[in-house]
């Protein structure tokens, strides 16, 4: 769902740029509490993996394709703040090096895929975990459901942005309907990949999975309070 330059007008692009900068600044502060010597390398790997995953477009019905957005995946594996940073780095490299997603649209793409993707994906993940039994085997399905809904959430926000600042005069309902329909389908692929990857990491190193903290044995379980915001 990389937005190219030109879809949205300048004021809207500036506004999403401001939102993106604020979101990334918050994430830079928050990520400190999610990362330590053990999990920082995993977070770097997750960013690289999301970049690779985004290259694997999978076919969806009727001549359309979709690809992993990775917000829910990154948030569950390394935490929501670090997740925002993972996706933002991926989007910046894509825009600047690979001409994938516009440069003036980078703020829009960070807002949609890094901020909305992570926040929606992680919020749904946490909500589903509350409903499911409190055990490790609930984590991958909850991550998959978070991933499933994170994609239409980003599509919804794009439709709203397009209604406000789209450069072509097309009815909101028409864009929204098409965006939600297709991206719900793409969300199924997002859910499958996210569930599979989270499940695989849980199988070998459950201790590295941020979203599983407190859900598995007492093996090397550390309570990391780190003196609140003082750190």
């Amino acid at each position: 769902m990389h937005v190219p330059d030109g879809f949205l007008d300048a004021p809207t692009s500036v506004a999403t740029g401001v939102v993106a900068v604020a979101g990334v600044a918050l994430a830079l502060r928050g990520a400190r509490n999610e990362l330590d010597d053990r999990t920082a390398p995993l977070a770097g790997l997750v960013a690289a993996f999301v970049f690779a995953g985004q290259m694997m477009n999978f076919p969806v019905a009727g001549g359309t394709s979709g690809h992993l957005l990775g917000g829910a995946l990154a948030a569950v594996l390394v935490g929501p703040y670090a997740g925002v940073l993972c996706i933002s780095v991926v989007l910046a490299v894509q825009a600047l090096l690979l001409a994938d997603g516009g440069i003036t649209a980078l703020g829009t793409n960070i807002t949609l895929m890094a901020l909305v993707g992570v926040v929606a994906g992680y919020a749904v993940f946490k909500a589903v975990l509350l409903v499911l039994p409190r055990r490790l085997s609930s984590v991958a399905p909850a991550a998959a459901i978070g991933a499933l809904l994170s994609v239409p959430a980003a599509a919804l926000v794009f439709s709203l942005l397009f209604a406000v600042g789209g450069e072509a005069p097309i009815g909101f309902g028409k864009v929204l309907g098409a965006m939600l329909g297709w991206h719900l389908l793409i969300g199924i692929g997002e859910a499958a990949i996210t569930g599979l990857v989270v499940g695989s990491v849980l199988a070998v190193r459950p201790d590295l999975v941020y979203g599983a903290r407190g859900l598995f044995g007492d093996r090397k379980l550390e309570i990391r309070a780190t003196a609140g915001g003082a750190a």
Binding site: M1, H2, V3, M55, M56, N57, F58, P59, V60, G63, T64, S65, G66, H67, A155, F158, M179, W182, H183, L185, I186
Partner: peptide
């Protein structure tokens, strides 16, 4: 990978 347009492009 699929060369079809992605959801947004489509």
């Amino acid at each position: 990978a699929s060369a079809h347009p992605d959801g947004l492009e489509y």
